[in-house]
């Protein structure tokens, strides 16, 4: 019912995070890239080049709106001004998908520009579910909620991340965005098994997959500590997890995320091509 107004769905093919420096390349030859994702907050100005480019691209490609500033995991209420801006953007653009993160970024009016972690408890579950329901109600469409990359745990957590996400999806009807790189980063950082995470994930809820690059470091004890940097190619172990994901859950719209040290279009299109071959081996 919530999806009734949307024109299009994302195709089960590769997409990329849109960067303005690729505008001309995309229009000339998008290659294997079948859809584009934008960060909602970058298109909340009143006019000018960003909105003109977006209107142009939206005539040619399905667009996914990915929010990074809603702070759905925040202790406080959602920002009504920001909800209004999202509603406005989703209203005129009519995107094929809207997604946000299981994380918080704003506290008492200060926006910290990072996807910050929260403990998984009955109390936080109730709060996040209420926020997701409020977002879906306000913007009038079903949203996807993304699993985070995390670097630490909370001693008060009472349940695992998958149970937490699945229960939010059950209570609100939202879909899930499975970020396979985040799975690899978080499981490595928690010293748990990423393949087991993919095995147990509720794939029937997944509306979109994210793939991105990470950096490697060490924690206080010298253990591997991966950082979700979105600044390089997708790592080989993440491609393997992605193959496992497609085997279990079937082909899903798959985004290549590359937000820092953004490469030329050919490099990004090549990453999308690698995803395309996994999504549809017959076409490769």
């Amino acid at each position: 019912m919530l999806d009734a107004t949307s024109r299009a769905r994302l195709p089960a093919r590769p997409g990329v995070g849109y960067k303005p420096q690729h505008f001309a390349d995309i229009l000339a030859d998008a290659g294997p890239v079948a859809w584009l994702e934008i960060h909602a907050e970058n298109y909340m100005g009143d006019g000018g080049r960003p909105l003109a480019q977006l209107r142009h691209l939206a005539e040619r490609f399905p667009i996914s709106v990915h929010g990074v500033g809603l702070s759905i995991g925040g202790e406080g209420p959602l920002d009504p001004d920001h909800l209004a801006r999202l509603k406005h953007l989703c209203g005129w653009l009519d995107p094929a998908s809207f997604s946000e993160h299981l994380a918080w970024s704003t506290h008492e009016g200060a926006f910290l520009n990072d996807l910050l972690p929260l403990p998984y408890t009955e109390a936080t579950l109730a709060r996040v579910a209420a926020h997701v329901a409020q977002v879906q109600d306000r913007i009038g469409r079903r949203m996807l909620l993304e699993n985070p990359s995390t670097y630490l745990d909370f001693t008060e957590s009472e349940m695992g991340e998958i149970d937490f996400l699945a229960e939010i999806a059950r209570r609100t009807g939202c879909g899930l965005l499975l970020d396979v790189n985040n799975v690899f980063v978080s499981c490595t950082n928690r010293q748990t098994d990423p393949a087991g995470y993919i095995d147990r994930f509720p794939h029937d809820r997944v509306g979109e997959i994210h793939l991105g690059g990470h950096d490697a470091g060490r924690d206080d004890a010298g253990a591997a500590l991966l950082i979700d940097s979105h600044g390089r190619e997708v790592a080989d172990p993440v491609w393997h997890l992605y193959e496992q994901t497609v085997r279990l859950g079937g082909a899903r719209p798959t985004l290549i995320e590359w937000d820092n040290d953004v490469p030329g279009w050919a490099t990004l299109a090549a990453e999308a091509g690698r995803a395309a071959r996994i999504l549809d081996p017959a076409a490769a």
Binding site: E41, N42, V68, G69, S71, D79, T106, A110, F111
Partner: peptide
């Protein structure tokens, strides 16, 4: 710190 997520 920023007062809104509109970093531009």
């Amino acid at each position: 710190p920023p007062a809104s997520p509109l970093l531009m």
